[in-house]
Design a protein around this nucleic acid. Structure first.
Lengths: 132, 132
DNA sequence: CAATAGGCGACTAAATTAGTCGTATATATT
DNA sequence: AATATATACGACTAATTTAGTCGCCTATTG
């Protein structure tokens, strides 16, 4: 429970790589090698980050990705949502898939806690995570 | 990702039930019925809460559980750890099971974020979660 | 001593997460 | 224009984690 998933970890590793390098493009393959991550998954994560404006993709012979956004302006909340799709503490908060539904006795408490957690994650930038 | 697991949800439901009732003992079976949760799992969760001093168990004919600790003194962090065993953001933080190990480029950032998250969960009491 | 209730280990099933494969599309270089 | 390199994306399989079940044991009350 409460674990980061691999995609988010790969995203953090990639962003760290970009944030430490100069502003040249780096290919998905190079990132995967540098971070010891599986190439296909890394490629997918970079695509997602690119489609959400965190990275900028460049096609072609010396293509690759580069940072497109200041990491002090990207929150952990934002990253989790982009890469994982949701940061909700329970799936009933987005979908309506819970068996309990009307019978659930902790709807409000969970909503309450969820808001606190999300506000917390919104308050932390990626830059802050890197610069201890 | 980042979801509460069912055991924590059942624990919250059970604790809410206790916190709203008078101080009579309630059996695991009754809690399971009241919260619409599977009886065996609920029983196990209550045992765990009992063995950690959150609840007090009483054997016998009219046995059951009752609250043993003020919920304003129990943090979300504590509950998660008791019921789930860990609140770490990555398993490499407790076990040493990660393939990357020496190669991981985000050890410090993850430790850093992990500490922030745990401090956050320590700062919220169960009572606070219930009383919005 | 029977009825009720907690305690615990081992197991099965379900769901989620992680990783792979194949193929299409875009673009710089030659 | 051809080719090499790189991104983009859908569908699939494998692995892991989470959820739930079963059976049996122990403790206590009436």
């Amino acid at each position: 429970m409460n674990k980061l998933n691999k995609k988010v970890e790969y995203a953090l590793m990639a962003l760290k790589h970009f944030s430490e390098g100069d502003d040249t493009t780096v290919s998905a393959k190079d990132i995967a090698e540098a971070t010891h991550s599986p190439a296909e998954v890394t490629a997918r994560v970079l695509q997602t980050l690119s489609s959400h404006g965190i990275l900028k993709a460049e096609y072609g012979l010396h293509g690759g990705y580069r940072l497109a956004k200041d990491l002090s302006k990207v929150s952990v909340y934002e990253l989790m949502n982009i890469v994982d799709g949701s940061t909700d503490l329970a799936k009933c908060l987005s979908d309506k898939e819970c068996d309990l539904l009307k019978n659930c006795t902790i709807v409000t408490p969970v909503e309450n806690l969820n808001k606190k957690v999300q506000d917390f994650y919104k308050s932390i930038s990626i830059e802050e995570v890197f610069n201890v």
